[in-house]
Amino acid sequence: MNIFRLAGDLSHLLAIILLLIKIWKTRSCAGISGKSQILFAVVYISRYLDLVTTFVSVYNTVMKLVFIVSSVATLYMMYVKFKATYDHNHDSFRIEFLLVPCFVLALLIHAAFTPLEILWTFSIYLEAVAILPQLFLVSKTGEAESITSHYLFALGSYRALYLLNWIYRYYAEGHYDLIAIFAGAIQTILYCDFFYLYITKVLKGKKLQLPA
């Protein structure tokens, strides 16, 4: 473990907590893409199946369980409890166009051709693009609540911090995983436009407004 990875995990945890707070406090999931939340649940479940096969550490196990439980809880709040506030008209991204290519790519490019490894690789590729429905929704509605933009900033920062973690691990431990690095780079790049808007607008107290 290193400071970059710990900061990344905590930023990730903060993002998930911010989202739960937003939905619970406002009793509304307006402005949140249920499609992205479905993809995140698929990412965590397909990546953390090794919960039953390998024990890494208490921290690792606890965090995996927290991520799985919170993503399922978010789906429950969006599609059941606060279903009436779900903006399904604007949340229209065809996630099958992300799920299928990521799975096919995982079958083609992977570190080992075993079920767990293919699913892990699929989850890595899927996580890189899982935010697209959310960014698509924000671009369609043209704005986002401030807490939603804080959620997105924390979520985007987590993988950016993981990039620093991979640089550190390469020089400190000689360890690297090109699949995770390439996917993580793409994932972080997808947030750049949002990062720019967040830093130039939200941090100045303005609302996140996308140029119409």
């Binding site: 990730h12 965090m63 995996k64 490894e117 090109l178 995770a180």
Partner: peptide, 10 residues
């Protein structure tokens, strides 16, 4: 070496 199956990260 490229990491194989031992994924110790979240």
């Amino acid at each position: 070496s490229v990491e194989g199956n031992n994924h110790d990260e979240l």
